[in-house]
Design a protein around this nucleic acid. Structure first.
Lengths: 233, 233
DNA sequence: TAAAAAAAATGCACTTTTTCACTTTTTAAA
DNA sequence: TTTAAAAAGTGAAAAAGTGCATTTTTTTTA
């Protein structure tokens, strides 16, 4: 049986190094960062980063699917986005020293690599290209979140739900058929509407042969029409 | 009469240098950046950065108020946010080489300082603290935009309009009384609802003595109730 | 400064969405 | 494996929001 360390190294060479920091970080710098990282498994529902708490690390998600969850003054949950591995979580907190403004919660069995924020910052200060890379990821994340924002803020429920289905198919599950990792209630928290509205709208899409639903299992039958619904709003 | 250059220098020492890059950029570096900047006046309605075009500069807004405007596939305009000087515009484009995803348009007589993006990048690469500062601004902007996003995506029109009024009072005009720089139609594009709904809601707030409206002139009479309306959504 | 154009306001019919009370189905636990 | 609890689903009434026609007011410009 291999030791834990060897598994870690392989994973990291495969993921963080190759995909995220590629070519901007030397092996020794990477090893420096790597020494302080620990891997962590998360069960469905487990909190990875908690809203309101100061965090000392980024989490490089190796495996799994997570939701960004904001809990408002009235304890109402709102899902900001759903995203899958591999991805770097906690970028928004990287320099603003105050607390995290939302929680990140696993909605599928996940595994993440905790990266010490202080060491990462130290490294970034000494490695311009690496820092540039992080800056790029940060602004890139901002840019992509704007479209999500536009959908939710300026479309009706049909269009919002269509957008969510498109995002799940194209980016999260990357498959026309998938088993939904969230409840109808959570879907409603994502779409910004009531759960009944989600149920009715999904049912309508099913009746119109745009999707086929059976419990948590969803199959996209007609992506083009979904895109059209998204466009008319 | 003073020369234009002297005026420029004074402005910049006052604004960009002191407020944004403070302590992270040397006088000579600043002068290097400054040599390539030009100042520009914008009339109400003039476009500062255009959606869909590649931009070669950031704009440091010295004076005025601007809207971030997104035009969708159906030519419908959506206002993402409204912000006032002094502020740095175009951060979202700083590293992602592709085109700007929204326009920035003056809604009041404004003045901006065009900063060459290549020179700024060169400078950032040679000055870690300066780059850190820009990274900080970028993530800070992202963080603050999330609350706007939450309001629009997950509240009803009452709450959204309350949020917009609160933002205008606290951050944009920084006064309980102000002359609105946007039309009811634009207000609707910001709130994500119909212009009739804006008119009715503002009228209701007026009837309830929460605000006093008279054309474009708005006075906030009861900020606490507005905050309460924002909270219940 | 008068005429034309644009913006604001109004009321109403219509559509969308929420809320609620309830039933059915699925999941978890004793 | 039965029971309890949670989630999903239903339909209808109430509330919220839109779109349109029309009038009034404000702004622009000739």
């Amino acid at each position: 049986m291999e030791t834990k360390n060897i598994i870690l190294t392989e994973d990291c060479l495969e993921c963080l190094f190759k995909t995220t920091c590629n070519q901007t970080i030397s092996q020794e710098d990477f090893d420096f960062l790597f020494q302080s990282t620990t891997q962590q498994n998360y069960k469905k529902g487990e909190v990875i980063l908690k809203q309101g708490l100061k965090t000392n690390n980024l989490v490089y998600l190796l495996k799994g699917i997570v939701k960004f969850n904001y809990e408002d003054e009235n304890k109402k949950n709102l899902i900001l986005t759903i995203t899958k591995a591999p991805t770097l979580l906690g970028l928004a907190n990287i320099l603003n020293e105050d607390v995290s403004i939302f929680s990140i919660v696993a909605i599928e069995e996940s595994r993440g690599c905790l990266i010490d924020l202080d060491k990462l910052k130290m490294l970034a200060l000494n490695n311009r290209l690496f820092m540039l890379n992080i800056l790029k990821m940060s602004t890139g994340m901002f840019r992509s979140s704007i479209f999500n924002f536009i959908s939710l803020a300026h479309k009706q429920v049909n269009g919002r739900i269509a957008d969510i289905l498109i995002n799940l198919t194209k980016n999260v599950y990357q498959n026309n058929s998938f088993i939904l990792s969230i409840s109808r209630q959570e879907f409603a928290e994502y779409a910004g509407c009531s759960k009944e509205n989600v149920i009715h709208t999904l049912r309508n899409f099913d009746n119109d042969n745009i999707i086929k639903i059976s419990g948590k299992s969803i199959k996209i039958l007609n992506l083009d029409r979904l895109i059209k619904i998204s466009q008319v709003g």
